[in-house]
Design a binder for these strands. Structure first.
Length: 591
RNA sequence: GGCUCCGUAGCUCAGUUGGUUUAGAGCGCCGGCCUGUCACGUCGGAGGUCGCGGGUUCAAGUCCCGUCGGAGUCGCCA
């Protein structure tokens, strides 16, 4: 070892010891005579003092004078106690100094493009290009450490519950459903490609068939889709599958994991079971399949109250089979000007809502450009339906049912944030159950799997296969954390006939199914146990636990919105030889 | 693919309705001085294709178009 101690480790009890430290120059204060160096490693900072009066030769002091930020040093010296007036209460090591006796510069640093110690980090492009410096920042060091703790706790939890960690291939077969695949060309098989896994879904089901009845893996997954603040093209799932279980077993297992993490990471006891609501209930009350339940402000239906009102927009929407729904923002009337409300109207237009009606609640009724269309009785009924109080601001959307959900769900989330209706440090976990098994894809006039095609239908709903597939509920479950999808899973189909029924509806005929999923279908024919599983988005969990608002901060080497790694320069062109080996020719597209 | 925001010194930013010759500040950097600082102090200095290309104009960092890069979002994400 090049060092006897770490920089953050030394305290008063080390006084008089001779120590050797290694680290980076965090800052220097050169007084001409005395030189102070703050030496930093990932354990902390300590002040090193170079005192010319205490050394025989000037060599040590001259060298200390050449030190610059981010130089890497090895320093030997004596730990000394600071006099009372020189104690720095801001540092855990602030009661002591290391008085340098020997200095070796292990590596000079170029002047860094930014200081790790900066209070005001530079733009992200620069941070990502110089990620090795960015990662020296205490905040990112904390985040990496936290992430390590989470994965350790997760592994320990599943290990204690008898789960086996089994790796599955990264080079797999492209299956056409779902997200766009990242493809890897084969050298040996001309014109053929591997696909990087979108998730280990099929392999983990096959592990169940193989008899490993409790599986977990911290698995890297790849999806070639556009990025978001909480979405990277490669990300990490905590992947879980269990055999001989029902839905309830998965829910309880994950409930236990949540309690374990909350206890270990935050010292909070969380009551179990975690709250559950149905997909239908979530859409009805919150307009979202991942509602933030840290606050209420539920959606309310006004259809019966305004069916015969004087306001044509509401009446017509209902007459055309649509809905009139709204929400009541507590004490927001004075906080939102007409201009602010116009902005909200533009915002919900993204979700296809054609308009946003609003009422300011006054002691005597409703104040709004459209209040003249509503009789005093109707106004009173609306106020009563929302249980509104003077000073509240009511928003109403009249549109097709799903549009009212999407628009009001988005509006609710935004108002909750803007009105600070919740404590941002609170963690709220809940289950959303019974998603629809299929959703109608109007563009392509076909049914799509809502979750994936291996998800078991609720038994009572099986007759709907013939009559109304949109009614079939899935034996699925999503975990929602603070309005984010934190995990998603289902009871799987273990009966090849049910599986074929699902494929039929998705428009995958037996021959296509054989081609695409033969290995899974074949496995299901050789004694597949009932099984169920779930996958948790590790990056998002770390984000939520640490209060980060973007996923890149919890990933050591993340990619930009255009899926580029600014540090390495990936993706990049390759040699002609490499392409030739892979039987690939690049064709310039005409513009 | 659509919409929105951002790009001025190494970094963070200012730069007015287009008009003061030489585009500023703080931090950082370089040099001098400084023995108890810890956001050290102090004196001096260097550092700019205003992302790039085109256009409008007597005049463009400022207005317009295109483009590149970064961010947010809708679509997309079984």
């Amino acid at each position: 070892m090049l060092r006897t101690h770490t920089c953050g480790q030394l305290r008063r009890e080390h006084v008089d010891q001779t120590v050797t430290l290694c680290g980076w120059v965090d800052s220097r204060r050169d007084h001409g005579g005395l030189i102070f160096i703050d030496l930093r490693d990932r354990y902390g900072k300590i002040q090193v003092v170079f005192d010319p009066s205490k050394s025989a030769s000037t060599e040590l002091h001259d060298l200390a004078g050449t030190l610059r930020n981010e130089d890497v040093l090895r320093v030997s010296g004596t730990v000394v106690r600071r006099s009372e007036k020189d104690v720095n209460p801001k540092l855990p090591t602030g009661e002591i100094d290391v008085r340098a006796l020997e200095l070796k510069v292990l590596n000079k640093s170029r002047t860094p493009p930014f200081e790790p110690g900066t209070t005001d980090p530079p733009n992200e492009e620069l941070r990502l290009r110089y990620r090795f410096i960015d990662l020296r920042r205490p905040r990112l060091q904390e985040l990496m450490l936290f992430r390590h703790r989470v994965t350790k706790l997760v592994r320990d939890y599943f290990d204690e519950h008898g789960f086996l960690d089994i790796e599955t291939p990264m080079l797999g077969r492209s299956t056409p459903e779902g997200a766009r695949d990242y493809l890897v060309p084969s050298r040996v098989h001309e014109g053929c490609f591997y696909a990087l896994p979108q998730s280990p879904q099929i392999y983990k089901q096959i592990l169940m068939v193989a008899g490993f009845d409790r599986y977990m893996q911290i698995a890297r997954c790849f999806r070639d889709e556009d990025l978001r603040a909480d979405r990277q093209p490669e990300f990490t799932q905590i992947d879980v599958e269990m055999a001989f279980v029902e839905r309830e077993d998965i829910l309880q297992t994950i409930d236990g994991l949540v309690a374990h993490l909350m206890r270990s990471l935050r010292g909070e006891e969380i009551p179990l079971p975690l709250p559950r609501l149905s997909h239908r209930e979530a859409m009805e009350k919150y307009g979202s399949d991942k509602p933030d339940l840290r606050f209420g402000m539920e959606l309310v239906d006004l259809g019966d109250l305004v069916a015969n009102c004087g306001f044509a927009v509401f009446k017509n929407a209902l007459a055309e089979g649509g809905r009139v729904r709204g929400l009541c923002a507590p004490q927001a009337a004075a906080k939102y000007s007409r201009k602010n409300i116009d902005e909200l109207t533009t915002y919900i237009a993204d979700f296809k809502a054609k308009g946003l009606a609003f009422f300011r609640v006054t002691p005597t009724g409703l104040d709004s450009p459209i209040s003249k269309f509503f009789s005093p009785d109707e106004q009173a009924a609306i106020i009563a339906r929302f249980q509104a109080a003077a000073g509240d601001l009511i928003f109403i959307v009249a549109d097709k049912g799903p549009v009212t959900s999407a628009a009001l769900g988005a509006l609710r989330a935004r108002l909750g944030r803007e009105l600070k209706l919740y404590d941002p440090n609170q963690m709220h976990f809940s289950w959303v159950l019974d998603f629809p098994l299929f959703s109608w894809n109007a563009e392509e006039s076909r049914w799509d799997a809502e979750h994936h095609p291996f998800c078991n239908p609720v038994e009572d709903d099986v007759p709907y296969f013939q009559t109304d597939p949109g009614q079939i509920r899935a034996q699925s479950y999503d975990m929602v954390i603070n309005g984010c999808e934190g995990a998603s899973g289902s009871v799987r189909i273990h009966d090849p006939q049910v599986q074929q029924q699902v494929f039929d509806l998705l428009g995958i005929d037996p021959q296509q199914a054989e081609e695409r999923f033969s290995f899974l279908l074949e496995a299901l024919r050789y004694g597949a146990p009932p099984h169920a599983g779930i996958a948790l988005g590790l990056d998002r969990w770390v984000m939520l636990f640490t209060g980060c608002d973007n996923i890149r901060d919890v990933i050591a080497f993340p990619k930009t919105q255009k899926a580029a790694d600014l540090l390495s320069g990936a993706p990049a062109a390759v040699d002609a030889k490499q392409l030739k080996d892979l039987h690939i020719r690049i064709v310039e597209e005409n513009r």
